[in-house]
Design a protein around this nucleic acid. Structure first.
Lengths: 335, 335
DNA sequence: GGCGGCTGTCGAAGCGCTTCGACAGATGCT
DNA sequence: AGCATCTGTCGAAGCGCTTCGACAGCCGCC
């Protein structure tokens, strides 16, 4: 491996001159700059990342704690991760992947061993144990997702409450007065994932504000379970004329069951989904709905966390406005 | 941050003694070992990972190059990543996440900047440009997936050819003489992903060996596209009495279309799928099929790569036998 | 009783880089 | 002309750890 000393020798300058040339932290004459550039190219020099990290106290690495469970919103998680990884590389940083299961200890470890400069934490729960630790460690951090107890920490997220409201409002405008929301699996609510709670809360408040009939329930991904649940709910009075689905895993079951019950979408019943665009479009009827702008949020998270690393104190939390895309699964209520 | 020198001072020993105690590389008396342990605990000492890496030339970090695209087998990818991350932590290593799009340069970079000890590369293509680079760099590496040009490199993968054969054989045993295989999206074959080619080749050879009628075609995930394709193919003679689906994204479309055509599964037509168990079970009919043992492969990859790092030259490539699980979507052909 | 061989510990030399302070020489000002 | 000021470069001191060689003290052995 060629070192900075090799480059210095080859270019006939001192090691520090090479370092300053590479970092641009001190003025260097054009001629030596060129000579060094040539030596670097000729020798194929690449600074040793660990030596650089040790000396500069910057690893140029970001920890990303992602929920890698076999949940149902895997594609969304993947989009987040992809967006974050790409954004990090754009800023010349790498991603160290931590799993949610490492929890508090994972955060503590990467901080105390000085492995990373900052951490991005996904899937925040209402009483997330990692939050007090993040505050205590003083490690630059950004949350993707939020909770009321996030005070003092910087976060970015889709405005799930308004996303739910947007769905309800769209249906209200179409004249629907009875809406059923099929939520995420029960486990998601049990662990009190911020996004699920926010969506449910947004749904409830929108329903109340518009004075319509609206109820919701968690739903498990297995086809038969989802199907049975839907059928049971549709048997209740008043019978829902529209569905809001916050669970991409059951979309197939929902649409299949509606067909079995001879309910046409959107003529007999409207469906709005919160899911990636790809998923919405791949259903038998292209679904109206809100997508999580995962890539965008991921990029924002990286930029926000790097700003903290660079000591820009003006940390700003960001709540991203939902965008409802109207496709073919919603229509005015007739009857 | 507390350093090893602080611990040494606190315990009244030299720095090297602390180091040897922690690493166990030299015998230390029980009494000083205890004293040091107490100091470590009391001061909350954690070795600085970058200093450790610089001095020992081991980062305890593995690069994982994963295809984070919005493809259709996202859940499988996620399982691989989760398995790898967990296994790495079990061996006290971390994962540095690289995206497929970083390609050859990504591999070169992590090697030449000494960021990682080894690399795990996923989704190998027939003429993968990364393979010659891996060979040239001499960086410990394991491929997940393979190609004929993998010579000299260590890899691990599900035996996709035999997986396809297992599917065909199961159908042949049930008396099916005409089988249609619906493959992955065209783009997957265009980039010549090893697993897709292997599955298709295995399908073709099994069909030939059993002397049955069998054909296959790529299929895009959009519902209408998949549905139209299936309908078109079912109109051909001889009409397939069984389907093999190597594309989890179209399972909903396939089952929905079959129902629309009044073909009952499995009475009128059998369906076998290559997809995660979770996906197989969440369909309207629980699907017979082969699952990719992603977690298991991921763990194997980590262990194989660490063995290389530790200089165990007996590198062994591993081809994992497929397991077909019979559920409710296949039945003997009647008529 | 003297010697070889252990065992347990220490000091010091790196690992490859960044950064601080110093300073020679060129430049601008009065 | 003389002084202050830049500009460009250098040497050296770390960053926090590992590891090599040295060696003191101890044991058992002939």
């Amino acid at each position: 491996m060629v070192t900075i000393a090799d480059v210095a020798r080859h270019a006939g300058v001192s090691v520090s001159t090479v370092s300053y040339t590479l970092s641009g932290k001190r003025p260097i004459s054009a001629s030596t700059r060129e000579r060094i550039a040539r030596s670097v190219a000729e020798l194929g020099y690449r600074p040793n990342a660990t030596a650089q990290a040790l000396a500069s106290k910057r690893t140029n690495t970001l920890a990303l704690m992602a929920p890698l469970r076999a949940d149902n919103n895997v594609p969304v998680i993947m989009q987040f991760v992809a967006g974050i990884a790409a954004a990090a590389r754009d800023h010349d940083h790498d991603i160290l992947l931590l799993t949610q299961s490492e929890g508090v200890e994972g955060v503590r470890r990467v901080r105390e061993t000085a492995l990373v400069d900052a951490v991005i934490v996904m899937d925040i729960e209402a009483d997330d144990a990692r939050l007090p630790v993040l505050r205590a460690l003083g490690l630059p951090a950004v949350l993707i997702g939020t909770t009321q107890k996030a005070g003092g920490l910087v976060w970015v997220d889709l405005d799930f409450a308004r996303a739910a409201e947007a769905c309800v409002e769209h249906l209200v405008e179409l004249g629907h007065g009875s809406v059923l929301m099929l939520g995420s699996p029960g486990a998601v609510y049990e662990r009190r994932s911020g996004y699920a709670l926010a969506f449910a809360a947004g749904f409830e408040s929108a329903v109340r504000r518009h004075g319509i009939d609206g109820r919701w329930c968690p739903s498990e991904p297995a086809y038969q379970a989802a199907s049975a649940l839907l059928e049971r709910e549709l048997a209740k009075r008043p019978r829902p004329t529209a569905l809001v689905v916050h669970n991409e895993g059951i979309l197939g079951a929902v649409l299949g069951t509606l067909r079995r019950l001879d309910l046409r979408v959107p003529e007999d019943i409207s469906v709005v989904a919160l899911c990636p665009e790809q998923t919405a479009v791949n259903q038998v009827v292209e679904l109206t709905g809100v997508a999580v702008p995962a890539e965008q949020i991921g990029r924002a998270a990286v930029e926000m966390v790097l700003r903290q690393v660079d000591g820009d104190g003006t940390a700003q939390t960001r709540l991203i406005a939902p965008e409802l895309t109207i496709r073919q699964s919603t229509a005015a209520r007739h009857a």
